[in-house]
Design a protein around this nucleic acid. Structure first.
Length: 90
DNA sequence: CATTTGACGCCAA
DNA sequence: TTTGGCGCCAAAT
C-alpha cells in the first residue's frame, strides 16, 4: 500500500454524495496535479466498494471508466443527482 | 530491475 | 469545433 493510494482513497471517500471530482482534481489533492493518469490507474486496480470511484470523472465531463460497467457508474451518478452531460466542448 | 500500459489533461493544428 | 499528439505519474507485468 503506497501513500499515493492512501491519499487517493481518502480523497475519493471524502467526496460527498451528489458531487463529483475530476481525476485531475484528485491528483492535485494528492500533491501531484499531473498524476491524473496515476489516479485512474489506482482506482482501476482497487476494487474496494468503500471507494465511491463512480464520483470521479474526467475534467471534460466524460465519466471515464468503471470496474465492470460504465453504465453502472452513469446510473449511480444520475441517482445521486449528477447529470452526465458528455459535452465534449466543455 | 526495466518496460509497457492506462478509468487523464492540456495544447496545437 | 473536432482531432491528434505530447507530457506526466504510478502500478502491473
Amino acid at each position: 500500500m503506497t501513500s499515493f493510494k492512501q491519499k487517493v482513497f481518502a480523497i475519493v471517500k471524502k467526496i460527498p454524495a451528489g458531487k463529483t471530482l475530476s481525476y485531475g482534481e484528485v491528483a492535485k489533492r494528492t500533491g501531484n496535479k499531473k498524476a491524473a493518469r496515476a489516479v485512474g490507474a489506482v482506482l482501476k486496480t482497487n476494487y474496494d466498494p468503500a471507494i465511491p470511484c463512480h464520483r470521479v470523472i474526467r475534467s471534460d465531463g466524460a465519466l471515464g471508466g468503471y470496474n465492470r460497467s460504465i453504465a453502472r457508474k452513469n446510473n449511480l451518478l444520475i441517482k445521486e443527482g449528477y447529470k452526465s452531460s458528455p459535452t465534449k466542448h466543455i
